[in-house]
Design a protein around this nucleic acid. Structure first.
Length: 272
DNA sequence: CTGTTTACCTGGGGGC
DNA sequence: TGCCCCCAGGTAAACA
């Protein structure tokens, strides 16, 4: 499932191939993947170049020369990757983008169709982030902002890490990995954390996400980067999806529970 | 206002 | 073989 490292990997791949390339056509096979009307969406894209590509949390921003920005969210099963121009679309291929001076097309494929493409004015970036109630990006958020919003939450620590208004970019897989590294129970109350614990927690958030970016993300079923390749961080996971297997610290079998409505993996010995 | 639950979707897996 | 049910989890909307 795409979280910050997966979206970052896609953004890097797209940047490598699309900067200053002009879109010459867009096929929208499934209209509801596009927020709002398709006609103005296509009109804003066609014959315009992509000037830069950025990311905030799990959102991807394709900025165009005409002061418009395409916001992409991959949600659960979205895939954005390059393929040969003559590749035939399958039933999960919902958008296709064609570019001048590029011998491949960009495909958006999404089995569960939760993803979304939204057109905004580039100048509305800040208000878009505010509307979505996104906190600071997990790789760059300050200790002060993180601690401030975390301590307001009267929910479980895992729930707070998953709350995009507290910190943007952490999802279910990395939340479990972060809590395991910090030896914290997912049901810890955020209010009970000491200043030192929050400092250490944020350090782990950033170090685990950065490590996952270096491994080009985590693939369980659907995630691929812009080259259609799977990630490699699943090989480095310490708890997620490892129920019954020995904890890599203490050999205690990993247990699967439910916290904040999500499947949650913990070492019952390390994470008290 | 905050926090909780449900809906959105499809495919895969278990039970029978 | 196939049907039924449940589960996966990011976000938005409905609800308490």
């Amino acid at each position: 499932m795409p979280e910050l490292p997966e979206v970052e990997t896609v953004a890097n791949g797209l940047s490598n191939q699309l900067l200053n390339k002009t879109i010459h056509n867009v096929d929208v096979h499934l209209k509801r993947m596009v927020h709002g009307f398709v006609a103005p969406f296509k009109k804003a894209l066609i014959n315009h170049a992509i000037t830069n590509i950025t990311r905030h949390g799990k959102y991807l921003f394709l900025n165009l020369e005409n002061e418009k920005t395409v916001v992409v969210h991959l949600r659960m099963t979205g895939q954005l990757f390059f393929a040969p121009i003559d590749r035939e679309k399958d039933k999960h291929t919902h958008l296709e983008f064609y570019f001048d001076d590029l011998n491949e097309k960009l495909i958006y494929r999404d089995i569960r169709t939760f993803g979304r493409f939204t057109l905004i004015k580039s100048s509305d970036f800040d208000s878009y982030i505010a509307d979505k109630k996104l906190g600071g990006d997990a790789l760059t958020i300050s200790k002060k902002e993180f601690a401030g919003s975390l301590r307001k939450k009267k929910i479980s620590l895992k729930g707070a890490l998953l709350d995009q208004s507290v910190i943007a970019g952490v999802g279910n897989i990395y939340a479990d990995e972060i809590l395991h590294k910090e030896k914290l129970s997912p049901v810890t109350s955020p209010i009970s954390l000491s200043d030192e614990q929050i400092t250490s927690l944020l350090k782990s958030v950033k170090s685990i996400l950065k490590k996952a970016v270096l491994r080009k993300g985590t693939t369980f079923s659907d995630y691929v980067n812009s080259y259609g390749e799977k990630g490699k961080f699943q090989l480095s996971l310490k708890v997620y999806n490892r129920q019954g297997l020995p904890c890599k610290n203490c050999k205690t079998p990993i247990v699967k529970t439910k916290v904040a409505g999500r499947g949650t993996y913990i070492c019952p010995s390390c994470q008290r």
